[in-house]
C-alpha cells in the first residue's frame, strides 16, 4: 500500500515536470513578446542578450525533454527566435546550433520552414534552408522570401533598376524551376510569381486591366468586361 502511494506520488511529480516543460515555453513566449515591445530593454544590448541566453538555454532543454512532437517544435522555433534577440558571440553560436538541429529534422516541411523564415529571415538562414531541403516548394519559398525588401521598395516607388532586375530574374526562376510546386496555401508557385510580375509590369496606370472571370457571392458567373462602358472601381476586399 505504501509502495503504491509512493509510486503514484512519483508519477504525479513526473507528469508535473513534463507539464512545466510546456508551461515554460508558453511563459517564455510571453516574456519575449513583452521584451520586444520594451524599447528600453531592446536598446540595452547586454541586458537583452543576457535574457535571450537564459531563454535559449531553457528552451533547448525543453525541446530535448519534450514528450510530443509539436511541443518539441514549439520549443525549438522559439529558441531560434530568442537566439536572434541579441548580437553577442555566444548567441550567434546558439543560433547556428539551433538552426542545424531544426534543419536536420524539419527541412522538408514547408509550413515549418515558413515559420523558420518568419523568425530569422537573414540570408544565411535562407541559404542554409535552400541547401538542406529536398522540397521544391521550400526552395521556392526561400527565393521568394529574399524578395520581401524589394517588394517593399517597389511599393514605395524607389526600386533601383538593379533591384528590379533581381526581382524579375528571381520571379522568373521561381516560375521556371518551381512553377508546379504548391505553396503552403495551395497556390502554384508559378501562379504566385506570375501574379507579382504582372502587378509590377502590367497592372499600371494606362494599361488595360486583364479580364476577370468568376462567380459572384450568389454563385452567378460574370466577367469584368461585362462592365465596359462604365467607370469601375475594382475593390479587393475582405471582412476582417
Amino acid at each position: 500500500m505504501r509502495k503504491r502511494t509512493w509510486l503514484i506520488a512519483c508519477l504525479l511529480a513526473a507528469s508535473a515536470v513534463a507539464r512545466s516543460g510546456g508551461g515554460d515555453v508558453d511563459k517564455i513566449k510571453e516574456e519575449i513578446r513583452a521584451a520586444r515591445a520594451d524599447k528600453e530593454l531592446m536598446s540595452d544590448a547586454k541586458a537583452i542578450s543576457g535574457k535571450a541566453k537564459r531563454w535559449v538555454e531553457t528552451l533547448w532543454d525543453a525541446a530535448g525533454s519534450a514528450k510530443e512532437a509539436e511541443e518539441r517544435w514549439n520549443a525549438l522555433i522559439l529558441a531560434q527566435e530568442a537566439s536572434g534577440l541579441g548580437a553577442d558571440k555566444e548567441l550567434a553560436k546558439w543560433r547556428g546550433k539551433i538552426r542545424t538541429k531544426i534543419l536536420s529534422e524539419y527541412a522538408d516541411d514547408a509550413k515549418k520552414m515558413g515559420s523558420l523564415m518568419g523568425v530569422t529571415s537573414d540570408e544565411e538562414t535562407r541559404n542554409a534552408i535552400f541547401a538542406a531541403t529536398k522540397n521544391g516548394s521550400v526552395k521556392a519559398a526561400c527565393l521568394y522570401s529574399e524578395l520581401s525588401p524589394l517588394f517593399a521598395a517597389a511599393r514605395k516607388g524607389d526600386l533601383s533598376s538593379e533591384d528590379r532586375k533581381k526581382l524579375e530574374e528571381t520571379l522568373a526562376r521561381i516560375q521556371k524551376d518551381f512553377g508546379n510546386e504548391v505553396d503552403t496555401r495551395n497556390r502554384k508557385w508559378g501562379d504566385v510569381a506570375a501574379g507579382r510580375l504582372r502587378a509590377m509590369n502590367d497592372l499600371l496606370v494606362g494599361k488595360v486591366a486583364p479580364e476577370i472571370e468568376g462567380k459572384d457571392l450568389d454563385g452567378t458567373p460574370f466577367k469584368l468586361s461585362d462592365y465596359r462602358g462604365k467607370v469601375v472601381v475594382l475593390d479587393f476586399w475582405g471582412n476582417w
Binding site: 517588394f151 505553396d183 496555401r185 495551395n186 497556390r187 501562379d191 504566385v192 506570375a194 501574379g195 507579382r196 510580375l197 504582372r198 502587378a199 509590377m200 497592372l203 499600371l204 496606370v205 494606362g206 494599361k207 488595360v208 486591366a209 486583364p210 476577370i212 468568376g214 469584368l224 468586361s225 465596359r228 462602358g229 462604365k230 467607370v231 469601375v232 472601381v233 475594382l234 475593390d235 479587393f236 476586399w237 475582405g238 476582417w240
Partner: peptide
C-alpha cells in the same frame, strides 16, 4: 490566397484599381 488575387499579385487588402469605360487602369 485565392485565384483572382493571386493572378493580380495582390498582397494587401484593400487594393483598389479604378478603370475607365474602356477598361484602362486610371
Amino acid at each position: 490566397a485565392g485565384p483572382i488575387s493571386t493572378a493580380w499579385g495582390v498582397t494587401g487588402w484593400p487594393t483598389i484599381y479604378v478603370l475607365d469605360p474602356k477598361g484602362t487602369i486610371r
